[in-house]
Every structure is written in structure tokens, then in C-alpha cells.
Amino acid sequence: MTSKWWANEESWRKAAIWVTAFMLVVLIVLTFDTIPKISVGSERVPAYSVINQRIDYVFNEQRNFQVPVIGTEQPLFGTILNEDEAEALVTWGKKITQGRNCMNCHTLLGNGAYYAPDLTKSWLDPNWGDSSMREAMMIRFLMDPPNNYMNDSGRKMPNMHISEDEAKAVIAFLKWMSSIDTNGFPYNFKPIDQEG
């Protein structure tokens, strides 16, 4: 029995193999291109020591969306950290967010759960008042969220038993994350006043 080419089992078998192999190769090539572009210290994902600096989120005419802008010195909690110290602090902060399962209420870079606000630009959120009180506000909130909630939905963040040192590490992680170039996500974000 001869069948038309479009109903031929053997040619579709070959097509399946070749298409899959080709797409896989393209994905691998793109992966090799992408990984260096998102490694720490690249243009899109700054070094951890960026937490020593001021970070803004500014509209870019050319790209037509907001992008993070790294500014002058603005050390976190008043201390300049070297590259290793910064990495250690941010690493601890990230591990705390994983251990406390933050991602099953919040989104980070827009991924996670939808019960609580996105944390991508939390460091830049106007809810922390202005840049002079931000650090203290963030520590206070993280250490005792149920008594410092900031919304009228009735939803409160539970007490995650975060110590002051842990809170600082988490904030370092959040500050670093806010410096990542996310192609304009979140859109139309209105950052905190950092002039005061």
C-alpha cells in the first residue's frame, strides 16, 4: 500500500526526529549565548556589590521602557561591603527567602504565587516612605509583619520569625534583585522618592 507523502509513517518519523534535534540544538546554542549575559557582573545582572550603590528605575527613550540605573554610592545600612562580603550577604538573603518559602505567596521576577505583591522592585517601592527611612521600615516590617501590615485587604504576612540580621540579608538580596534589567517589567512602576 503506497500512501501519500503527508500520510506516510516513515517520513513523519524522520520529520519528528529532525525537527526535535534541530530545535534542541538551537536551544543549546541560545543557552550558551544567554548564560554569560545573565551571569553576575554582566550588564543585565549586576555584581552583588551593587548594593553599595543607589539604584533607580528610569524610563529609557531608546528602549521605550524603564530600566535600572546604577547611581552614586549609597551603602546599605551605612557600610560599604567588598565583593565577597556582598556576595555572602546576598546569598544568605536568597537562602532565607527559599527556606521561608516566600515564593508561595509572593512573585519574584513575576514568578511564584499571587497572594502577595511582586518583590522584583520591592527595594524601590514607594510604600517604604522615602529613601531616608526605607531601611528601618523594611527591617521593622520583616521582623514583625502582622503588626506592620500596609493594606486594607485583611491579608497579612505571617510572622516568619526573621531576626534583625536575617532581615538585613533579605533586604540586601531585594536591593540586588531590583538592579536586574527585566526588559521593563514591572511596567509603569512608580519608584520611591530618593531625593530627600
Binding site: P117, D125, N127, M150, N151, S153, P186, Y187, N188, K190
Partner: peptide, 10 residues
């Protein structure tokens, strides 16, 4: 509208 901030979310 709100611009994806904490208060915009709520």
C-alpha cells in the same frame, strides 16, 4: 493604571 507597586497590588 497603578504601576505594579505594593499599593497598586492591593
Amino acid at each position: 493604571i497603578e504601576g505594579s507597586t505594593w499599593s497598586g497590588y492591593f
